[in-house]
Nucleic acid binder design. Structure first.
Lengths: 210, 210
DNA sequence: GTCTATACTACGATAGAC
DNA sequence: GTCTATCGTAGTATAGAC
């Protein structure tokens, strides 16, 4: 078995277990078993449990960055200048985030990232630099165009709130299901939530009537 | 030592460790040590680690419900009927939630609750019934008054988004700090974030200009 | 009602065979 | 590059003293 394949298999298994059980709850033995190898392979390839954890963060960042590359590139290719165009671009970004939060894939990442948000380690630095900062900075520029009357700090806080509207779809998933009166977040409900996300993001991004 | 005191000390210690380390990461030995008792006291009082975990959920629900009792009672005492009054009441609720998310106390709860959101257990049922459902139902009624033109499902989705604007202050704490360009969320920044939360909640709750 | 002592299992790390 | 074997530590649970 080539080394790269085994590394990838170990990271995939580790992501699943770190996400579900947390750093301490996950066991390198179980991860190795799930990857079909011996525990000492983890030591060999990643230096230990901590090294494997950081490798997982890199993997998350890569997948998420990949996921929204089309949207970011579309905006970069045709940078908005009018408030209307900036709003449209921002709503594309937020909807993209919302879709990710609703997809099963983000379930694996959520717990991992929330833990890092409360107690950032080296893993958070990597997540932030590779999957957060680029899109946040782009969004901030766009908000400056969409809401020119706001002070800089107010634009930044607005960005945080807007991100929260999307994050809640994953981080408070069980509560959102109850609010929406469904057993699980099926596709029809997801469409409804995304439509609301767009509508509510637009409310935030429009200058209020004078 | 009276039984109640010891139980309370154990729950306090357990909350801290479950919040920081997760269910699997926390150790009953360490929890008992932090509570100044023997590990077997946990078996005696709570039946085991799982029982202690559920007791922690009850404790969280109690503290949070207590925290917002004044606001909920103020609204119940003088139920709004006009859209303006409903908006004011809703903003009180959201600001209350935002303050909780910014307070250090919620750090202990956050990881605990997020874990339950992804994989609900009996603990989530208790959290939902005691600290979420009552306020969510009140909020839904108020949104019906503030945004009469929206369909029911749209009001529900709006509620989810509005809650997300507050939750992000805790759940994406490290990212919010970076967005706000501060090392840690100090009091001045917290005030700024709360002011934005009020302003942005108002944007969501106002009927858009025709 | 609370403690000590103990049984049993699983952890992460590492050394060394292949 | 991957495996097996083993070390020292720490986990939960329980029995029984007080």
């Amino acid at each position: 078995m080539a080394s790269q394949d085994l590394s990838a298999r170990i990271v995939a298994a580790a992501l699943e277990q770190f996400g579900r059980l947390g750093f301490d709850g996950a066991s390198t033995r179980d991860i190795a078993r799930a990857a079909g190898t011996a525990m000492s392979s983890i030591t060999y390839h990643f230096g230990g449990k901590q090294g494997l954890y950081v490798a997982c963060a890199d993997h998350i960042a890569e997948i998420v960055a990949e996921n929204r590359r089309p949207v970011v590139e579309a905006i970069a290719a045709d940078p908005p200048t009018s408030p209307e165009a900036a709003r449209a671009a921002l709503i594309m970004l937020i909807e993209n985030l919302g879709r990710l939060m609703l997809s099963p894939r983000s379930a694996t990442f959520a717990q991992f990232i929330v833990r890092e948000q409360q107690h950032p380690t080296e893993a958070f630095e990597r997540l932030y630099a590779r999957m957060m900062r680029p899109v946040l900075e782009t969004a901030l520029l766009l908000i400056g165009i969409a809401r020119p009357s706001l002070a800089d700090a107010e634009r930044r806080a607005l960005l945080a709130n807007a991100v929260g509207m999307a994050l809640v779809l994953r981080l408070a998933r069980a509560t959102v299901s109850r609010i929406m009166q469904v057993e699980t977040l099926d596709e029809a409900t997801a469409d409804l939530l995304l439509a609301s996300l767009r509508r509510n993001a637009l409310s935030l991004l429009k200058e209020p009537a004078p």
